[in-house]
Simulated assay, not measured.
Amino acid sequence: AGDVCCELDSSTLVEKEKEQQIKVTTARANLEKAMKDIEIQLTTNESNVAKAQLAEDLAALSLVSYTSAGGEYEQELETVKGDIKKTEEELSINREEYERVRDQARLGYANVNQLESARLKVTQSQILLSVNRGKLEVLEKYTRPKKEKELAQTAEDSKRETQRARLEGEALMTQMKAAADAAQLTLSVEDEKLDLFQRQIKACRLVATQAGEVVYASQKSSRGSEPVVIEEGAAVRERQAVINLPDLENMKIDARIHESRISRVMIGQPVEIEIDAIPGDPYRGKLQSVSSVPIPGSWPNTDLKEYEAIVQILDSPERVRKLKPGMTAQIRVVVEDRKEPVLQIP
């Protein structure tokens, strides 16, 4: 037991195994990459959500900073009002100076140039005051509502952007997890194929499961009575019997019974056995099993129908050891045609 009885050519399977190992390695690498992509996407999602949340917080702070008491708007408002107040004071001073220079010019103490310079300062103060008052009006009527709406819209958009970043990250994670599941399934399938090739390569070495004599399987071709030769280099088909390991102490006989007689035989009936190689020394046996369906005949007798049967040999082990696998035997199944006693006439 354990000896190699026969080895089939496994070169094609070995090549397929190598190719399959490459596929398994590729599938495993794809799975590892998919898992790493999930880790990278997870950190990317956290970063994107954090950035969006920061932008949302800053937008909310900008809105509060502009609209709250003492905020940016009120500071701008106070600045413009301060400029107006300053310009009004400068205008008042320039007017007084202009009136003083005008009075001096009437008395001949100031010339025309001095008078014109004082007048220009008044005009400039008036223009500057008008500009500052325009700034105040624009700030209150247009700049403030515009800025408040822009900041409010930015704050609202930043909230939606945070939600979008979160949902987009979840969608990418779902997609990548699906890709990882597909890679895992692909690896499992490729592993199963590799395991199949390895088992097939292992099965090419036919190892004896018990002690005994190795016998080539006896078969006939489907086109006639020519035997199928089992030899080195011969092609074999799937499920073809190549060798047998018979138990020499428990020999059995494979027989065929014609369909015309199958109704007369029953399991357990005694059988007389004549071995062609041992003439005049019959063996005893019994019918152990009979197939339930017939087997078709070989060409050209394809219409012939026979039933396979197995006959168990009941002789002592010493006599059974005289038999060799492959010997030809003739059997006679003993059937009881009549169950009642009959008279025999000499």
Rank of each mutant, 00 (worst) to 15 (best):
A255W: 02
A255R: 02
R256G: 04
R256F: 11
R256W: 09
R256T: 06
I257A: 00
I257G: 04
I257W: 02
I257T: 02
I257K: 02
H258W: 11
E259R: 02
E259M: 08
E259Y: 05
E259V: 08
S260A: 12
S260F: 10
S260H: 10
R261E: 12
R261A: 12
I262S: 03
I262A: 02
I262Y: 03
I262R: 05
I262F: 00
S263E: 09
S263T: 09
S263N: 11
S263K: 14
R264E: 14
R264F: 14
R264C: 07
R264N: 11
M266A: 15
M266Y: 11
I267A: 10
I267R: 13
G268C: 12
Q269I: 08
Q269S: 15
Q269V: 09
P270M: 06
P270W: 05
P270Q: 09
V271L: 08
V271S: 04
V271P: 01
V271N: 00
E272P: 00
E272L: 14
E272A: 10
E272M: 12
E272H: 14
I273A: 01
I273N: 05
E274T: 07
E274C: 02
E274F: 06
E274G: 06
E274H: 08
I275E: 00
I275L: 01
D276H: 03
D276S: 04
A277S: 10
A277Y: 04
I278V: 10
I278W: 01
P279M: 06
P279L: 01
P279A: 05
P279V: 03
G280P: 01
G280S: 10
G280Y: 07
G280R: 02
G280D: 07
D281I: 09
D281R: 11
P282V: 00
P282M: 05
Y283V: 00
Y283H: 03
R284E: 15
G285F: 06
G285K: 04
G285R: 02
G285C: 09
G285L: 06
G285W: 00
G285E: 05
G285N: 06
K286F: 14
K286A: 12
K286L: 13
K286W: 13
L287E: 04
L287A: 08
L287N: 07
L287H: 06
Q288G: 11
Q288K: 14
Q288D: 12
Q288L: 15
Q288V: 15
S289Y: 13
S289W: 15
S289G: 15
V290C: 08
V290R: 04
S291Y: 01
S291E: 09
S291M: 10
S291R: 07
S291L: 06
S292P: 00
S292K: 15
S292E: 14
S292H: 14
S292G: 15
S292Q: 15
V293F: 10
V293Q: 14
V293I: 12
V293H: 10
P294T: 08
P294V: 03
P294Q: 07
